[in-house]
């Protein structure tokens, strides 16, 4: 089901891509271009970017939870330096960093 690319491993550093893809995506702007680590490998799910246009039953792709230091997401972050954020990102939005 997922033969093409190696999966990201738990703890690996990854950068969130900005694919510039129009239409429905689940990768919010605030994480694009940012570097985090794989916090959880969640299993394979159908791509919502396909399902959103009625194309159901397609290939399942890996979904990860990626964790960031809040200070890396927001230059003006007012909380504490140890604060973190975790978000779900599909495989094709990630590259090793």
């Amino acid at each position: 089901m997922w033969p093409d690319a190696p999966r990201h491993a738990l703890g690996a550093q990854v950068r969130i891509l900005d694919l510039g893809k129009p239409g429905h995506v689940r990768t919010p702007l605030y994480v694009r271009g940012k570097v985090g680590v794989i916090d959880q490998v969640c299993g394979d799910f159908e791509n919502p970017e396909e399902r959103a246009y009625g194309r159901v039953g397609g290939a399942r792709i890996p979904l990860y939870r990626v964790r960031f230091a809040q200070a890396d997401l927001w230059p003006d972050y007012e909380g504490r330096p140890q604060d973190q954020l975790v978000i779900e990102i599909y495989h094709h939005w990630l590259q090793p960093a």
Partner: peptide, 12 residues
């Protein structure tokens, strides 16, 4: 930077 979807409000 891509265009912001109206639903994408995180951080605003």
């Amino acid at each position: 930077m891509s265009e912001r979807l109206i639903s994408d409000v995180g951080g605003l």
